[in-house]
Nucleic acid binder design. Structure first.
Lengths: 211, 211
DNA sequence: CCCTGCGACGTACGGCGTACGTAGGAGGCT
DNA sequence: AGCCTCCTACGTACGCCGTACGTCGCAGGG
């Protein structure tokens, strides 16, 4: 495939891995396939990358680095938090298969720090610093991670989610669930994300003005 | 291994899978190994289970079903929310390797509904019903999923997390991060979990008394 | 007594990650 | 020029994996 005259190098390999991950998910990545795609011998890859695990790590970092810094024109910290959260969501939606992978991996990259720094800046804007700010930042990250995992790992094109997840369960044993069963079966991800986001913002606001 | 005189059946196979998952994680599960552990031929498993994917699903459901309903003596909905969240956390900590698996899978089981119903009950106690309650429940689930993923996927015994994740990054470019770098490198999961939990509760409270 | 059906199992295929050994070419040295 | 050293590419092979397929033996019914 693509001009096999180019000598192999780490960048080209990682590139190919990223493309493959975005196209078919991590589980589709194999050293043999990658090599074939690069028109190289399988074992040649090992001259540039110690093993598959770190290759995947490198790919994860590369994808993370694609995150564009968001921009927003406002003095209100809430708008910044919103913009930041939406930017993360955008990244997740653009790379659904990669996101699941990123989510289960601890990041230690420059790119990861950019996100952390931006989140801390927003929380500082809201009037928090130090330990409390870190706690809030982490809670925010947890919420984002959670919703986006749910949104993205649930998307139908990603591997056979049942149409109605509640087919073979007798709901009558669960009165409250039964009452809102239609709601439970429906996912309006836009709405849910924004709802949860406002909930998180409300929580921060409440800490601002203590009783 | 263990009394190979017993005839094979689905329950025994799923049991073995669960044990193996809890001991060494999903990635350690293989049909050959499972069969060996049961003192059976590899292909005999396929008489009781169509393929590995559904076997793992069955194991996931079985683990989920182990979740004990929590109990708490209080009239305050906050205490119920706390108890529920802590029960989920306990489950995650008792089965860290299984939890990561459960988290990336959509549940449609009876057991899953028990959790949903309990969460809805608590939120109803706080005075919310219908669509709003579902949104809140989902936000709560997202937060729980997120923190617990972070807590559990990060635990050192689960596959080589670097001691200090921020070794080779130049923090000086990130002033706010630098300011709290010690905090960032430290994880007090108990404290963090409770902090985030109170944040979520605060958010619900704020919805109770609208400005 | 035979027939039928089912569960257990062996073999084999095409995949995987990667250890290891080899070969060839580029660059520096004398 | 000749040689040596080092780096990269690559082939082979090992031990895993999931599972399709075919066979065999045995239990139960006619």
């Amino acid at each position: 495939m693509s001009s096999s005259r180019e000598p192999l190098n780490r960048a080209r390999i990682v590139d190919a891995a990223v493309r493959l991950i975005e196209r078919e998910g991590v589980e589709a990545v194999s050293m043999r396939r990658l090599a074939a795609e690069l028109g190289a011998g399988t074992m040649s890859l090992y001259n540039h990358v110690p093993n598959k695990a770190v290759l995947v790590d490198l790919a994860a970092e590369r994808i993370m680095a694609e995150a564009r810094p968001y921009h927003v024109d406002s003095d209100d910290w809430r708008d910044h938090v919103r913009a930041h959260a939406r930017a993360v969501r955008e990244l997740a939606r653009q790379h659904p298969r990669a996101f699941v992978m990123l989510a289960t991996r601890r990041l230690s990259s420059q790119a990861g720090f950019m996100t952390i720094e931006a989140a801390l800046r927003n929380i500082e804007r809201a009037g928090f610093r130090g330990k409390v700010a870190v706690g809030m930042m982490r809670a925010m990250v947890s919420y984002l991670l959670g919703t986006l995992m749910r949104e993205v790992a649930t998307s139908p094109e990603l591997g056979g989610i049942a149409l109605s997840p509640y087919e073979d369960v007798d709901v009558s044993a669960f009165p409250l669930s039964a009452e809102v069963i239609d709601e439970l079966g429906t996912y309006d991800h836009d709405h849910e994300f924004e709802f949860g986001l406002e909930l998180m913002i409300a929580a921060l606001e409440r800490y601002q003005e203590p009783d």
